[in-house]
Design a protein around this nucleic acid. Structure first.
Length: 495
RNA sequence: GUCUCGUUAGCUCAGUCGGUAGAGCAUCUCACUUUUAAUGAGGUGGUCGUUGGUUCGAAUCCAACACGGGACACCA
């Protein structure tokens, strides 16, 4: 039993062998391609206006994968596809070397093969600009057949496990990933243009910090110690601010050992950036600028559909967390600001909460349950309770709150930002409180004395932010599963 | 982790009340020199996800397991 143990594949292996025996290398790397489909179409767009609707003096060589093949006796039409598009080729027996058409082309060339063709541009009776082929050769034999040409491959499992097939068959998938690439590229340019330095910090951490999440554990054999795949780069980026860099960013993968669903993949991409001598207020303005920049360069309409919602990116709102509970969540102010009333209310609403939770934690629970999904237009939720913000700076006027915001769009968290806590003693105490919560909350933040030590040398007042790139791409591409914006989403192995 | 739906040819899908497995595309043979999911004629192709159970008989009913989709839970 092997992966080639299939009659269709065996037939194609036989064809490859026959091609070889006829002197055509089925895996040739000798190619003369001198144009792409897109350029061919552009350069020859005038051919339709010529008298004969052809120009035999122009000669082009194109290459691509055969997607359609229509053999009609002594002539054939086929469509090849390269990255830039589809092009129709016209082959006729008498325009090709003696015997090639009947003995090789008709017998051994088929849909899925990658071929190269040279010839001149002409327009068919039906008005399609095509290539009139005088030279034709195989470059790469495909020994597995492609899925059906009309329906393509729709099975999600095949599309995710064999993304290359999905990309071959579904051209809109390519568009999504090109958009993703543009977003990453624009993001990098946006921050570079503003003087931010791109840095790379460790992916393997001795302590998994910077977020509340379960890490993946790996082992370093030479040192005989465990390492954690990072759950966030935050604490390293802030060490760089201590070191004197004043604006840094990192775009890369984080890893969280948690459940997988439509919005969670075990590895995901974020940008985190830190900006000295700024506060969370500056980040709100920077975030608005960032979205404007993306929309302008991606040429997106400011009213963007997402599922059955329409998000108005000209309508950024701002509201404090407690205000959002009363104004958007419709919760009575007395409930929103009183621990025992909030606890009772959540239990009445059949939301499972631990009796030991503090008011701030309960406010977080109420926000998740009654507010988050209602935030369609971009909304900055500000002033988070200190208990659920262990790395954020306290508000000077209201020390139980932090100078923090999260940005919600289309009912989902897109960004998390705050003025950074730079008081080493306060940071040390907050870590200790987190460690004390470990028995109730196994995702509470770990103690990181080395980070506190860094703060003890003095970190300039700084604001920092993280944006989930995958969710941002989902939002801008109107995709509803993170798997559709990841080229190779995590899948269980087939047993 | 829970609930739920699904898994049949390379792909997209039918399969009635439990009674020898079906279609379209692809593939093979033949015809066809301007087609557009080309067309016409004929053929090949199946461990019905896996393992068990019920039954004279299972793609079909039952159970467990595997994988996938969706929802929920978890996840700042």
């Amino acid at each position: 039993m092997s992966i080639f143990d299939n009659s269709y594949i065996q037939q194609r292996i036989d064809k490859a062998q026959r091609l070889k025996e006829s002197g055509y290398n089925p895996y040739s790397n000798s190619t003369q391609r001198d144009t792409t489909v897109e350029k061919f179409m552009y350069v020859n767009s005038d051919v339709a206006d010529l008298e004969d609707r052809r120009d035999e003096k122009r000669v082009y060589s194109v290459a691509g994968r055969i997607k359609f093949l229509r053999i009609m006796g002594k002539a054939s039409f086929l469509k090849i596809e390269d990255e830039s598009g589809l092009l129709q080729l016209y082959l006729s027996r008498d325009n090709l070397p003696e015997g090639f058409y009947n003995n090789t082309f008709k017998k051994d060339i088929e849909v899925g093969d990658i071929v190269e063709a040279s010839g001149y541009p002409f327009v068919t009776n039906k008005g399609e600009l095509s290539l009139h082929v005088s030279e034709f050769k195989i470059l790469t034999k495909a020994i597995s057949p492609l899925p059906e040409k009309f329906h393509g491959v729709t099975d999600k499992e095949i599309r995710y496990r064999q993304r290359y097939l999905d990309l071959i068959m579904n051209s809109e998938v390519k568009k999504t990933f090109k958009l993703r690439s543009s977003i990453v590229s624009l993001t990098r340019r946006f921050f570079e243009d503003r003087g931010f330095l791109e840095v790379e910090t460790p992916m393997m951490h001795p302590i998994a910090g910077g977020a509340n999440a379960k890490p993946f554990v790996t082992h370093h054999n030479a040192l005989g110690i465990d390492r954690y795949l990072r759950i966030a780069p935050e604490l390293y980026l802030k060490r760089l601010i201590v070191g004197g860099f004043e604006a840094v960013f990192e775009i890369n993968r984080c890893f969280r050992n948690e459940g997988m669903d439509a919005t969670h993949n075990p590895e995901f991409t974020s940008i985190e950036f830190y900006w000295a001598y700024k506060t969370y207020r500056d980040l709100i303005e920077l975030t608005k600028e960032y979205f404007e920049y993306l929309f302008e360069h991606l040429k997106l309409p400011s009213k963007l559909p997402y599922g059955d919602m329409v998000v108005d990116f000209d309508n950024f709102n701002e509201v404090t967390l407690v205000e959002s509970l009363t104004k958007i969540g419709g919760i009575d102010e007395k409930i929103a600001t009183d621990r025992s009333a909030a606890l009772l209310y959540l239990k009445e609403q059949k939301i499972d909460v631990d009796d030991s939770l503090s008011l701030g934690q309960l406010q977080g629970e109420m926000f998740d349950a009654f507010v988050e999904s209602k935030l369609v237009d971009p909304t900055f939720i500000t002033m988070y309770p200190v208990e659920i913000s262990p790395l954020a700076r306290r508000s000077d006027s209201e020390p139980h709150l932090t100078e923090r915001f999260e940005l919600f769009i289309a009912g989902r968290e897109i960004a998390n930002a705050f003025s950074e806590l730079n008081d080493p003693l306060d940071q040390y105490e907050r870590f200790k409180e987190q460690v004390a919560c470990k028995d109730v909350d196994d995702e509470a933040h770990a103690m990181d004395e080395d980070f506190v030590k860094a703060l003890s040398y003095g970190m300039a007042p700084t604001a920092g932010q993280g944006i989930g790139i995958d969710r941002l791409v989902m939002l801008l591409s109107n995709e509803h599963s993170i798997r559709d914006v990841l080229l190779f989403p995590a899948m269980k192995p087939i047993q």
